[in-house]
Every structure is written in C-alpha cells, then in structure tokens.
C-alpha cells in the first residue's frame, strides 16, 4: 500500500498531468453522462491510493457541489422543453432540462475532479521544476514561485494588521458602513509596504546574477521514475482504444 502511494506521488509531474489530460479528453470521447460521472470515482480511488482521499473529497465538494446543484436548478426549471415531469404553479421541471444538466454537470465534475486530483498528488514546486526543464523561462518560474511564497506571507500580515487596527480602535464589526471603512486602512499599508520593497528586491536579484546571460542550473530537480514510461504507454494505448472504439461504434 505504502509502495503504491509512493509510486503515485513520485511520478513525474508531466506524467501525472497526462493522466489528468487523458481523463478530461476521454469524457468527450465516451458518450453519455455515466462514464463522465464515474471519472469522479476514478479520481477518488486514485486519491485514496495516494493517501489524500479526505482533502480530495473536501475540495471536490467545495468546488463542485454548489455549482452542480445550481446548474440543475436553473436548467431543469428553465430549459426549453415539453416533457414536464413535475410542476407547481408556474414552475415546472422538464426532462430535457434534466438531461442537459446531467450531461453538462457530468463533464464539469469529471474535468474538475481530475484537476483537483492532479494538484493533490503533485507539488506545485515539482510541477514548476519540470516545466523549467521543458524550457519555461526563468522569469516565468520566478513569478510563480514568488507568488506561492508571497500569498501566505501577505495573508499572515493581514491578520496581524487587522489585530493591530482593532487594538487601535478601528472598528471591524458592526454596521456595513463601519466595516467598509475598515477595508482600506487594512489593505493599503500592506500593499504600499510590499511594493516599496520591490525596488531593492530588483537590486537583490541583480546582485545574485539573475539577469546573467548563462543557462541557469537548479539544485532542486525532479527525476523520472521507472513507472513513468509505463504509465505514459498505458495512457496512449487507452486513448487509441477509445478512439477506435468510438469510430467503430
């Protein structure tokens, strides 16, 4: 079990991405909504193997449940159709709407869950590192890595500033207008502070030869495992089989 978990987690990021891509494409090849919905369960199963079942399910529910429910409500009531299956005063649920919603939501769920799975089993740092190896420019890599570091820093700072404001007597609760007034004093020092730092950050990067015109090396690298080619070949075979099956149908 632990072995399987490791092999999944250690797969090369682009291999994992190919799995996601395959799942996304397959729902457009296989007709009907049953297969597409089953992709959710496939992803659940993989996330279970990779030891992140709980996070996967939490995120899938948060990201997808509401939107699916709303699509059903909007489409089943308001999709033009004639096969009424339930009605109350001016509202009526039509079969056509349900079919449309089933079809649409199944694809959203499939694509959504395969991406959620991807980011549960892939460290963003690894993904970026593998893209760097594929030739992503250093400036782009820098933007992504820096973004990932700054967001939690700024979020922490926000809490600090808001607490400081509270002790200084700035009200952050109560009437809507009071709360609106608290917004700018919280945000603006945060922004001005971090923007003022960029000037010297440029000097730091220049001092560390960031713009030297040589090919950079990297201490942090991700290695391909022996399973990577196997997984890729399986994906290719599956894809070809699906396409042939679909054409023959």
């Amino acid at each position: 079990m632990d072995q399987i978990k490791k092999s999944i987690l250690h797969l090369y990021p682009t291999t994992k991405f190919l799995v996601t891509l395959f799942l996304c494409i397959s729902v457009f090849i296989v007709p009907g909504y049953l297969y597409a919905y089953s992709v959710l369960f496939i992803c659940m199963f993989f996330s279970y193997l990779a030891g992140s079942f709980k996070e996967f399910s939490d995120l899938a529910i948060k990201a997808l449940l509401l939107i699916v429910v709303f699509i059903f409500i909007l489409q089943s009531f308001f999709y033009p159709g004639t096969h009424v299956i339930w009605s109350w005063s001016i509202f009526s649920i039509k079969q056509e709407g349900i079919d449309f919603a089933l079809n649409l939501t199944s694809k959203i769920v499939a694509i959504g869950s395969s991406f959620i799975l991807f980011f549960r089993i892939t460290k963003v740092k690894d993904l970026i590192s593998s893209l760097e190896a594929l030739g992503l420019p250093p400036k782009v890599t820098y933007i992504f890595l820096s973004t990932l570091q700054i967001i939690p820093e700024m979020k922490k700072l926000t809490i600090v500033i808001m607490d400081a404001q509270k002790t200084r007597g700035v009200e952050t609760e109560g009437k809507l207008f009071t709360r609106i007034k608290a917004f700018l004093p919280t945000l603006s020092p945060l922004i001005l502070g971090s923007i003022a730092g960029t000037e010297e950050r440029v000097l730091t990067l220049e001092s560390r030869a960031f713009s030297a015109k040589v090919k950079k090396t990297s201490l942090y690298t991700v290695e391909k495992t022996k399973y990577d080619p196997i997984v890729r070949i399986i994906l290719l075979i599956l894809l070809i089989t699906l396409i042939i099956w679909r054409v023959m149908l």
Binding site: K139, Y142, I143, S146, T147, Q149, I150, I151, E153, M154, K155, T158, M162, T172, L176, R179, I180, A182, F183, T186, L187, L190, I191, S194, I195, T198, E199, R201, V202, L205, E206, F210, S211
Partner: peptide, 27 residues
C-alpha cells in the same frame, strides 16, 4: 524586473482583498 516583481504582489493583493472581504463580511 521591477515590473515582474509587481505580479506576485498583485496576485497576493487579489487574494488578500478577498480574504479581508470575508473577514469583514462585506457584500
């Protein structure tokens, strides 16, 4: 470089803006 350094901050501001809205319960 200086403009590039603006991007991560911009992204973080988007996130923090949303976070403060949540904390202050703004509509």
């Amino acid at each position: 470089l200086i403009a590039i350094l603006l991007i991560p901050i911009g992204v973080a501001i988007n996130f923090v803006g949303a976070q403060i809205v949540l904390l202050l319960k703004l509509p």
